[in-house]
């Protein structure tokens, strides 16, 4: 039993080291950020104009999404995407009235900052400006979700699906609604 005790403590040490090393990678994905401060609810401040222009460098670094890779933010973005009726024009990524968001074609740029701008300031041909209406952190959550729609493979931070796929799906089952 004493050899067991020694082995147990060695095993515990290894686990401790492994855990610490994994801390950085996992912590960000699983963070749940319940915004408790009013400052975080500032209505969206616009970012400087996009640096994209014909003939220019393509790899322009822009502002990063503070919620990059954060699972809670992506799921909240998914919820807001339906709640604020983005699905009305963009469906669940496939587009319709608005362009598709689940492809790699970005009319106004696919960097986080560009997507933020599209949501906050609106775009020509019908994209409303949400900046004056919703807090900045919610736009970043939406940005995170929109980015997750177009990734080649879903990241481990994004959900595999929503709980509805067809838009008209909140009718309960009953005699009048056999499904």
């Amino acid at each position: 039993m004493s050899t067991m005790a020694i082995s147990n403590s060695k095993v515990a040490l290894c686990i401790g080291v492994l855990a610490l090393s994994l801390w950085g990678s996992c912590c960000r994905r699983e963070q749940r950020d319940f915004r408790a401060t009013a400052e975080a609810s500032q209505l969206a401040q616009s970012l400087p104009d996009s640096q994209l222009h014909p003939g220019g460098a393509t790899n322009v670094a822009g502002p990063q999404n503070p919620f990059q890779g954060n699972a809670y933010a992506i799921t909240e973005g998914q919820r807001l995407f339906t709640a604020y009726n983005c699905v009305g024009c963009h469906a669940h990524g496939g587009g319709g009235i608005g362009p598709a968001l689940n492809d790699k074609v970005w009319i106004y740029g696919g960097q986080p900052g560009d997507i933020y701008e599209s949501i906050a300031r609106g775009r020509p041909n019908g994209m409303p400006a949400w900046g004056p209406r919703i807090p900045e952190y919610q736009i970043w959550q939406l940005t995170a979700y929109v980015q997750s729609l177009s990734e080649g493979e879903p990241s481990i931070a994004s959900p595999a699906r929503g709980d509805e796929i067809s838009p008209s799906s909140v009718q309960p089952r009953g005699e009048n609604n056999p499904k």
Binding site: R32, F34, A36, E39, S41, I134, P135, Y137, Q138
Partner: peptide
């Protein structure tokens, strides 16, 4: 209105500034 997250952390109402 100002700090709903302080009352009910995680609820869907954002704080308002």
């Amino acid at each position: 209105i100002v700090n709903s997250q302080g009352v009910k952390p995680g609820n869907k109402m954002p704080p308002n500034d």
